[in-house]
Structures are given as structure tokens and as C-alpha cells.
Nucleic acid binder design. Sequence first.
DNA 1: ACGTGGATGAGTACACCGTACGCATCGTGT
DNA 2: ACACGATGCGTACGGTGTACTCATCCACGT
Lengths: 222, 222
Amino acid sequence: MNRRTPLTQDRIVTAAIEVADEQGFDAVSMRRVALHLGTGTMSLYRHVADKGELVSAMVDRVTGEYSCTGADTSGMGWRERMHLLARSDWRMFMEHRWMLAATTTLAPPFGPDSLASMEWALEALSPLGLAPHEAARVIMTVTTYVQGSVRVVLGGPGQVRDQDSPGAADPGLQWQARLRDQDIHRFPRLEELVHGHRPEADRDWFADGLDLILDGVPDRSR
Amino acid sequence: MNRRTPLTQDRIVTAAIEVADEQGFDAVSMRRVALHLGTGTMSLYRHVADKGELVSAMVDRVTGEYSCTGADTSGMGWRERMHLLARSDWRMFMEHRWMLAATTTLAPPFGPDSLASMEWALEALSPLGLAPHEAARVIMTVTTYVQGSVRVVLGGPGQVRDQDSPGAADPGLQWQARLRDQDIHRFPRLEELVHGHRPEADRDWFADGLDLILDGVPDRSR
DNA sequence: ACGTGGATGAGTACACCGTACGCATCGTGT
DNA sequence: ACACGATGCGTACGGTGTACTCATCCACGT
């Protein structure tokens, strides 16, 4: 059929990402991706070994698109760069919700973009004079903090939220919606957390929580 | 068949957990769980609405088993209790490796045990005088730190490691095994991280990283 | 003691999945 | 003109979750 535009791994990955964005991660099947491309199902296997490889390629692609390595960070301190990293990751997970499921099920990414991203983050922390493994730990902590925050806000894989900015979707509100009131009375502190919550009081809880983490990072250079 | 011991949701969940522990998370299918119980596949649906509900029940069960709520924590400071929480979580993910995939794919748990666990953690942080949402953020950060560490050590879902204690399985060694040397030279800091790594230098990296996080937690009581 | 009805278990069937295999077709080098 | 490798595709198989239907058993009212 599509002899004019030959099948490529790139085209397949693009189609798969579109399917995932539009119909969810579970909808990404070889048949549906092929349908989206207007090709036969088995044609995909000429360019992709596995479904696993397809998913890995999807993750690599998206990871690269949201990498900070291209940003102009001159004049930024290490803290600002960590915020930039966290915001980029946040946007990535928000604009491609399936990425949460895809990355957590998968092995940690080792594509060139991921490595470059790690290098960039290590570079950003270099003024602190940390030991390499310390810096790596900070980066991992920041990254997992983002994923944890995203998971709380998204509230699971099937959930759909309309807010894409971190300040808008508030975790406290999520909990409120879920908890039945008769359960909650046995847990006074939890109740205080859920009911005594004022949405406007902490506008940018995401950045605040990140700063909490960064406050614990020692500066060994001075 | 098994009229003597009637089918229960509890029995089904137990069987499913056994299957997951022995054959991996992907092996948990309704047919296999039923086979493990010696019953028909469809019999399970009398006690479980969905496969999703089954998995949720599995997660709830295991979560409850590793809860800190039963531990004797008198005389422990908030920091020790956070360490206890983190260690419990670590052991849980290590002894039931499928839990990583199960929890990250799923919605955040809202079973009674999970709520009690959250209440316990909030209680543990109470001497710090934090605002509720601040305390919740600390707990989330600790929890996600554990998951991130576990994921790094496990190195993906299919990987099998023989080490179960956090001090033994070192993340740096994992990276070393994965990276091809020709790639790494373009990333000097990454290279330093990977090659300049001394396994004996940081014995308990898990606890150290946790302390890094806890160092950033403010004490508003004094 | 005897139906009888509801609860429980099990079997069949369907749509969908990943993918191994083999065949048709095309573009290109000789 | 011919052969051949590369590319696309159709069929088929074993697996999955589960909707629907029937078989069986236990407890209960009469």
C-alpha cells in the first residue's frame, strides 16, 4: 500500500505515541498502531523487534523531546536548574500520561538522550562539589519526586484530569474526593489533612516540595 | 469440587500472591490463579469483580503486612520512624518484586491499611509541627524515594537480583554493567560516576540518601 | 420429609492480544 | 532481462479477560 512513504521505525513510533496520547497506553497494540498507519499488522515487525522495543523507543523519543540539554541555562544556579529539570519532567508526564506507566514498568532508560540528560543534571550540580554518587542520588530523588507527584495528581492510570499545570491540580483535593467520611474519622491527622485543606493557601506545592528536597542537599564547596 | 474449603476472596488473593511471587507478575492470570486453587477459572468471578480488583486486593494485602502501625515505636524519634517506614517499604518491594509494577500502574491505594499507614506516618512527624500538607509531602517524598531506589536496584521488571538488603545491591554497579564504554566517553561526569565508584566506600547508600531528604525537613516546633 | 429457591462453582464462547511463519511484491544491480 | 534481497502483508496459534449459561448443592418453609 503506502509505497510512497516507506515504513520506518520513526513513523511507527510516532504513530504509537499518537495512539497512546489519544486512546491511552492500553490501546497501544500492534494491530491498532498498524491501523493508524494504514499498514498490515505484521509489517511493523520489519522495523521493530518486539512490542517491548516499540515501547522503549516511544519512551526514548518522548524523553528526548523534553530534555533540558538544549535549554539555555547560562546564569542559572544549580537550584534553578533542578527546578527546570523537574518542570520539564512534570510537563512530559502531564502531556503524555501513558509515560508514567511506560517508564515505571520498564527498565531505567539507557538511550543516548537519557544519558545526556543525566550528564546535564550532574553538570548542573557540579558547583556543590558533591561526590558523584551523592549527586546521582539527588537527581534520582528529584526525578522520583516528580513521578510521585504526578501519580498523586493523576490518581491512577485510568483517570483523566483537565489541568496540566502543577499549581492547579491539588493533591489534597484528590484525596477529598476519594475518601468516604465514615472511614476518615478513625484517622484524625488524615482527616485534618483532608478537610482542613485550603486550596489557595499553597499555590505552588510542587515547587515547595522540591525546595524541601533541595534544602537537604549539602554544599561541600564552601 | 472443593466444597470443604469454600472459595473466598481471601483464598483467591493468597493464591494470586503466591503465583506472583513464584512466577512473576505477568504470570498472574485468572486461569493460572484458578489452576493454583484447583478450581474453575470463572469461579473466581463470584468473589472478585475484575482482574483489577484482584490486583488491588493483592496490593492491599501486602501493604498491610508490611505496615508499621503494629511496631513498637516508643522512644523513637521522627527520624528513626521515617527510617523504619522506609525500611519496611524497601523490604516489601524486595520480597514481593511484582509490587513495584502493581503499585505504579495502579491508583494510589485507599484501603484501610494504607490509610492507617498514612496516619501512622503523619503521627510520626507530628513533633515537627509541620502543616498537614507539608507532612504529607515529606511522606510522599520518602515513599517515592524508596520506590525509585528499588527500581534502580532491580533494574527493571524482568531482572532478578539475589540481594535483598539495601546495603548490598549497589546502584553504581548496576550502571557499570549496562553502559558500553564507547558511549560513556562523551559524558565525562557520568563516566566519573560509573568508573570512579568504590562499592565499599558508601555502604548504606539507601539510608544516606534518605537522611539527605530528611535533612531538608524543617522543624517548626522550635 | 419434601420440594424449592438462592447461592456457588464450572464450562463454553468471543473478542482481542503478541507474534512465528510463509508468501507476494517491488526496486535495484548485474 | 533476470535474479535477488528487501519490504509489506495474511494466516494461524496460543494466550488473555470475561459475558453468558448451565449444573450443583445447601438451607429453609411447608
